[in-house]
Design a protein around this nucleic acid. Structure first.
Length: 539
DNA sequence: TTGAGCTGTCATCGC
DNA sequence: TCGCGATGACAGCTC
């Protein structure tokens, strides 16, 4: 029973290596060897019955894709320029000349469609070079699947809807399993297929992995997706959420943000489908992911009113549930979403993000955020998630007129506009807060300097006062000495020395010096002081 | 574990 | 009325 076609080769349906169980690894090795041997045989013979089936399938798909492409062209009359600029003729020529062996499936199908029928025989899907790093294999296989990805992307269809666009069963790897598991429509994870080359034709995992077969062989999708950037999943999830209609709180929870002040709350009834696929069965180790995902989906709805933060472990299950479609969208995002989000804003970011990561574990946080995302601020992640075509720097630092004209020039949803305005408000307030703190710090420093200067001045004045007092005392002493010296030399009428304790010297206005008894001096002094007081009282 | 410092954010006020 | 800056207050994070 041949149910899976992997690049022109067949796999026995009941035999799915890739489980995390170690016992399955041995079977996986055997499967790999068998498959490798089969590949060699097929290459040696150059053709096979299965290839004929594939070619027939390709021909049928080609017709379908061409028909679908014609329909899509009418549907997507306003496709972006990047799609209009996509030309494959030159690549086809390069491929025919042998200079370019990295043609994608779509290119090849177009090449086939442009060639006479008899020339198709020489090319089968098994001959398609699936080079490591050529992620276009997955992306450009839309024609093969009768899907116009550009339409899906341009319409911002979420993953779930994008998957539903597949009209036939070519995407299915296991029709039997599919019928037996009707609730597992698309996201059958690669955990069943350890060999990444045996995944879907359009999802060549080798494009993301180093071409070390022996290492890849023992990896499961669990392992392969484990280290992938969570932000990519965030983008995928939010892309569907942002366009399909969602509650901003849920996106905030998905981003680990308890507060989203975008202020718009859309329908959140079905937004968790693209995020949490309860039917995704990754492996035995993640067997409990189904319940977790359900609970997460449930809590996501709760989070809209209660503020639930999904734990990182649950987010990990979400990532694993993205399945192979992840790669296709990933490729699209690498190519079509050329957002220039600056990693470093002009405003110095805090070294510690206030972004509240669920669980608050920095190890887990750093595990899911790569270096780029660690440098992204929360608003940058938000903008990236909602595919806002402006950088945070542009949004924040752009003049008002330019900002308003920019908003009017682009067709933006209310959510995007709200987020942009929030980003601008927060960004400007952040700068204002920084300036305010800097200014406050400057004021404090200036006040401290003033205090220091005043203290120094006070000390100077104290020293000057001490010096003045010292000078005054010296002058007093000199005056006292001079006084006694003069009185000691004076004689009364009887020739006796004048007692300094009974007489005092008094200078008159005309410069003459009189010897006056101290009683008169003290009484006269009292009278003068009393007169002075009276005068002051009268005045 | 606790506290200080830093930073982002929100609310509010005034221009 | 709107936009924006300034600032107090609060919370989260780091050390």
């Amino acid at each position: 029973m041949l149910t899976r076609t992997t690049g022109g080769h067949t796999l026995p349906a009941p035999f799915y290596p890739g489980s995390l169980c170690e016992s399955d690894l041995f079977l996986e090795e055997l499967w790999w060897e068998l498959n490798s041997t089969e590949n060699e045989v097929l290459r040696a013979t150059g053709h096979s019955s299965q290839q004929e089936e594939n070619e027939q399938s390709v021909s049928a798909q080609k017709d379908k894709s061409l028909q679908q492409q014609g329909e899509d062209e009418t549907k997507t009359a306003d496709t972006p320029e990047w799609e209009a600029e996509k030309t494959t003729d030159t690549r086809n020529e390069r491929y025919l000349n042998g200079t370019d062996t990295s043609l994608s499936l779509e290119d090849l199908l177009q090449l086939l469609s442009s060639q006479p029928e008899n020339s198709v025989e020489g090319i089968s899907l098994g001959d398609i070079p699936l080079l490591p790093g050529s992620i276009n294999d997955g992306m450009n296989s839309s024609a093969y699947y009768n899907v116009n990805f550009s339409q899906a992307i341009s319409h911002d269809v979420n993953l779930h809807e994008a998957m539903l666009l597949y009209p036939d069963n070519t995407f299915r790897r296991d029709a039997v399993g599919r019928t037996s598991q009707p609730q597992e429509p698309f996201l059958q994870l690669n955990s069943h297929t350890t060999n990444p080359a045996q995944t879907l034709p359009g999802t060549n995992l080798t494009g993301f992995l180093p071409p070390v077969d022996h290492q890849i062989r023992n990896l499961t999708s669990h392992d392969l997706l484990y280290d992938l950037d969570i932000n990519i999943f965030d983008e995928i999830n939010s892309m569907s959420l942002a366009t399909e209609g969602f509650d901003s709180m849920e996106v905030s929870h998905l981003f680990g943000e308890p507060d989203s002040d975008s202020g718009l709350s859309l329908n959140s009834s079905h937004n968790s489908t693209s995020v949490t696929n309860p039917n995704s069965r990754v492996c035995d180790s993640a067997r409990g992911s189904s319940s977790d995902l359900e609970s997460l989906s449930h809590h996501a709805l709760e989070g809209a009113v209660g503020g639930y933060y999904p734990e990182p472990s649950k987010i990990r299950h979400i990532d694993l549930s993205s399945d192979s479609t992840f790669h296709g969208d990933l490729a699209f995002q690498h190519i079509f979403h050329n957002h220039t989000y600056h990693l470093q804003s002009s405003v110095p970011e805090s070294t510690s993000e206030s972004f509240s990561w669920p669980g608050k574990s920095q190890k887990i946080k750093s595990r899911y955020l790569n270096d780029t995302d660690r440098n992204l601020s929360r608003d940058e992640r938000r903008a990236k998630a909602l595919h806002i075509p402006f950088s945070v720097d542009e949004i924040v630092h752009m003049p008002v007129d330019s900002f308003n004209s920019m908003l009017s020039r682009y067709y933006l949803t209310d959510l995007q506009v709200s987020l942009i305005r929030d980003i601008r408000r927060r960004g400007k307030n952040k700068v204002a807060a920084q300036n305010c703190r800097k200014r406050k710090l400057d004021i404090i420093l200036n006040l401290e300097d003033d205090v220091c200067n005043l203290q120094a001045k006070k000390e100077t004045l104290k020293s000057e006062r001490a010096q003045c007092n010292k000078a005054i005392n010296i002058m007093k002493q000199k005056l006292h000495d001079l006084y006694h010296d003069i009185l000691s030399r004076l004689r009364d009428d009887e020739g006796r020395p004048v007692n300094p304790n009974q007489y005092a010297l008094q200078c008159s206005h005309d410069g003459s010096v009189l010897i006056v008894p101290k009683e008169l001096v003290t009484s006269g002094y009292k009278k003068e002081t009393q007169k002075g007081k009276r005068k002051s009282e009268r005045n």
